[in-house]
Every structure is written in structure tokens, then in C-alpha cells.
Design a protein around this nucleic acid. Structure first.
Lengths: 189, 189
DNA sequence: GTCTATACACTGATAGAC
DNA sequence: GTCTATCAGTGTATAGAC
């Protein structure tokens, strides 16, 4: 564990507030009050409010990109790859629920980094879709509309940040397994 | 079709802008400019910005409540009830994609109506969960964690607003059927 | 139904003292 | 690392003319 710097504290506090009210509704004075200091003091550690958003979102987006790159290049079955994608989302979200909220809801307020974020996001979705289409080709997956399959899985996984903090006794591997059951095998008997 | 009043035009334009940037990031001047008038003129038709949010969110929330009340009181199988819930979400979302974005993302900015909204939402989720638990009791549904089943279905359905506008050639009944396949029957062969 | 003019609180951010 | 003081710009909303 790296030592948490003052900037890290500010970023983490900002992420929590952004999760509650959204980037635009959180003022630098709100953030400073929560930290127990004055707004001007924040600027000794960060350069702008936008800097906070960028720091929160881009690091998580890159985690997803790196995870997906490893998965798509692994030589396992499609069903195994999908399980690994579920594990990836559960692991990243459990580690940073607040940041996931900003990633999902406030990416449009990125300025300089918006295009870069959108590229990471599009690439991720394309890789996900490729995996599903492979599964349909090799008959591991039913020939449903692949976009709907991806949409359904991805929106569930992207919304995990809403759900994980509610379960105080979270076991990430139990959660991954349950999601795998529901998302892959369906719910009807 | 009722005639669209000036207030309706303002509400619909506001919903579109709220969908793009979120309630807090949209200014009354933005809204006025989009309408082709000055900000002050808006106040001849509405009483406040908050009034717009309330109008957008509460009417949709009540549609969901009414739909759910009909479903939970119908005497059909659990699988049929779940199909009807999917139909309900597809129908409401197809009819008002922008409003669904505000419902999902900006409900926390409601003021007087916040508690009322939260009650409608909690009741809806409890009814949904009751239906799933009934299905497990009567062996229509696998004995997975019912909260995870609801979470997975509901987050997918709540995110439909992101997906429906992308499909220019939308056939709502095809979409409902595809979602039913994926959500109920799973994706693996 | 829309305008101009205006109020006045709040916003992100900087300068410079300690 | 935090403070006080401050600025220029923007926020919602109102009053009153046309």
C-alpha cells in the first residue's frame, strides 16, 4: 500500500461527493468544507476542479482497458472470457465505488481528456462485442442479437457501483459467481 | 394527441438538455437559447428550474408505479409477470428517452418531491423483488440470490434510455422479445 | 409571450501573508 | 499547508415595458 498523499485524500473525497450529487453540483467550497479546510487551500494540491475529474476517471478507464487487453488475448473459451470480464468489473468497482460513479455519470464533463476517454470506451465495447460474436460463431452462445447481449451485461456491470456499497458483508468472489450464473445461464428453470 | 402547450415545449427541451449534461450543468440561459428566447421569458410559463425537474421525473415515476400495480395484481405466471415488466420499461422508455435519463441520474436534485419519489422507487423495487421470490417459491425461477436477479434485470431495464435512441429503426416488440430471451433464458447454449 | 434591465448570491480561481 | 481577501464571471429569478 502506497502512502496516501494530501492530493489523494482530496481526490478520494471529491469522488465521494461527485458520486452523491454529480460533478457539476459539487462546489470547491463543498469539497473544502468536507476536508475541513478552506477552498483556496485546495489549490495548493490540485490545479483545478477539472483536474480532479480527470484524475478520477482516466485512471479507472485505463484499468478497464488493460484488463480487457489481457482477456481478449487469452486463449480460453468465450464463456471463460465473459467470466473474466465479470471478475474485472467486480474487482475494479469493489476497489473504487465512488470513482465508478463519476466514470459512469460525469464523463461528459471531461474537457481535454474527453476524446481520449471516448476512444478507450469505444474500444472496450468493441472488444466486448467481438468476444460475444466469437461465442456465437463457435456455438458457445445462443444466436441472440449480440448488441443486446453486450448491452445487458455491460449495463449491469457498470451499475455495480450502486449495489456493492449496500452489501456490507461483501465477498467479491461470491458476487462474481452469482453474476455469472444470472448473466450467463439465465434465471428460468 | 393533446396539443403541445408552450410549457410542454419547455419541459421537453429541458429534458433533452438534462439528458446530455445533467440537471446541474444546464442553465436557464442554455435552455432559453435552445428555445430561441431569453431566460426571463421562461418564467412566464414555469415557476422555477426545480419545477421542470419535478414535472419530468414525477410523471414517469407514477407511470411505473401504475404499471407495476397492474402487473403484481394480475393472475399469471411469474415468467409472464417478468415479461410484462420488460414491456413496461420498453414502452415508457421508448416514449420518453430524455425523461428516463433525468429519472435515473437527477432524482437526487429533487427538493420537495424527493421523499415522494423515493417512496415510489422503493415500493417498485419491493414489488419487483416479491415477484421474483414468488417465482423461486413456485419453482419457475432458479434459486439464485433474488436481489442479484432483480439488480441485474432492473439496471438493464433502467439503462434502456441509453440504447433505444441509437437504434433508429426501433421495433419495440422485437426489443422486448430479445430482452426477454437474454434476461430470462440466459445466453449460453 | 417576449423583451431589457437588474438583483444579488454563488462560482472557480489567484495573490500574498503566515 | 492553510489562511484571508478578493475578483470576474455566471447562476436563478423578478419587475415592469411592449
Amino acid at each position: 500500500m502506497k502512502q496516501e498523499t494530501r492530493k489523494d485524500e482530496i481526490v478520494n473525497t471529491a469522488a465521494k461527493l461527485f458520486k452523491e450529487k454529480g460533478y457539476s453540483a459539487v462546489t470547491m467550497r463543498d469539497l473544502a468544507t468536507t476536508m475541513g479546510i478552506k477552498a483556496a487551500s485546495l489549490y495548493n494540491h490540485i490545479s483545478s476542479k477539472q483536474d480532479l475529474l480527470k484524475t478520477i476517471i482516466i485512471s479507472i478507464a485505463e484499468e478497464f482497458t488493460n484488463g480487457m487487453d489481457a482477456i481478449i488475448n487469452s486463449e480460453v473459451s468465450t464463456i471463460s472470457k465473459l467470466k473474466e470480464i465479470i471478475n474485472l468489473h467486480v474487482a475494479i468497482t469493489a476497489n473504487n465505488t465512488s470513482g465508478m460513479a463519476s466514470l459512469n455519470n460525469d464523463w461528459m464533463h471531461l474537457e481535454e481528456q474527453l476524446d481520449y476517454y471516448l476512444k478507450l470506451r469505444t474500444d472496450y465495447e468493441n472488444n466486448f462485442l467481438t468476444i460475444i460474436k466469437e461465442g456465437i460463431s463457435n456455438s458457445e452462445i445462443k444466436a441472440n442479437n449480440p448488441e443486446i447481449i453486450m448491452f445487458s451485461m455491460l449495463t449491469t456491470l457498470r451499475s455495480l457501483y450502486l449495489w456493492i456499497p449496500k452489501k456490507e458483508d461483501l465477498n467479491t468472489s461470491d458476487l462474481s459467481n452469482s453474476l455469472n450464473d444470472v448473466l450467463i445461464h439465465g434465471i428460468n428453470k
